[in-house]
């Protein structure tokens, strides 16, 4: 479980204000919000890449606010994946395992590549992959270390609509199979819906989570309430 309490972070003129958030183990939370609303800043505060000005971050009941990223046991997948270009696909997936001294690197890499359906590309160069394949390798690399939480920053942003739909299904399946807690931020409202996940909204550095607040916001922004949310 992940819990964020009263988190504030100022970056230039932008401020993340008094964020309170609770994500249960195995839950998939999608945070929707326009570009510049503070979604990535929140993810980076949770990941330990940014140090919050105030407030706390707890993972599985442990206060990790002052811990560096490597001691939080979470994985972060940025918008442009950031696959290491000097390593091939399998080496990218193995990266975190090797750093942590895992005893079964090869087995775990094989397992992760099977999970994302890219076994045949294991020795391929990451620069030659399609955008969708890069995203899947990044997710495999992130999940390989068995993180408590997977943080996904705009995972569909660079994909065309066909690949986006395919990856959305795949992500839902990966979530079902691994039961990893996922916090997924996106500005793409349509792509995020249909993931059978809880939805929160972020705008202007504030987080809206109550069902009535979220539906009210979406009604105002989209002019309708998406079917997924109407069903609750």
């Amino acid at each position: 479980m992940i819990r964020v309490k009263n988190l504030c972070k100022r970056l230039g003129n932008f401020e993340l204000r008094d964020i309170n958030l609770r994500v249960n183990s195995g839950e998939h939370l999608v945070i929707l919000g326009p570009i510049g609303s503070g979604k990535t800043t929140l993810l980076k505060c949770i990941a330990g890449i940014f140090v919050p000005d105030s407030g706390t971050v707890e993972i599985d009941g442990r206060d990790v606010t002052k811990l560096p990223p490597e001691k939080r046991n979470l994985s972060y997948v940025p918008q442009d994946y950031k696959l290491f270009p000097h390593l091939n696909v399998a080496e990218n997936v193995a990266f975190g395992l090797r750093v942590r001294g895992d005893s079964n690197v090869e087995g775990r890499v094989r397992e992760m590549l099977e999970l994302v359906g890219l076994t045949e590309l294991s020795s391929g160069h990451v620069e030659r992959l399609s955008e969708g394949q890069k995203q899947l390798v990044a997710i495999a690399r992130a999940l390989a270390i068995r993180p408590s939480v997977l943080l996904l920053d705009e995972p569909f942003a660079r994909l065309d609509s066909v690949v986006k739909a395919r990856l959305r299904k795949k992500l839902a399946r990966i979530h079902e199979e691994t039961e990893t807690t996922i916090i997924h931020v996106t500005h793409d409202f349509e792509a995020a819906l249909g993931l059978r996940s809880r939805v929160a909204v972020m705008d202007g550095g504030r987080l809206l989570q109550e069902s009535s607040e979220v539906t009210g916001y979406l009604q105002e922004r989209l002019g309708y309430i998406p079917v997924d949310l109407e069903r609750g």
Binding site: E70, Y76, R100
Partner: peptide, 16 residues
Amino acid sequence: VDREYESVARTLGCTK
């Protein structure tokens, strides 16, 4: 060299 590479490496377990 984009700092985000280092951020990803840190979350995967690397020290600075």
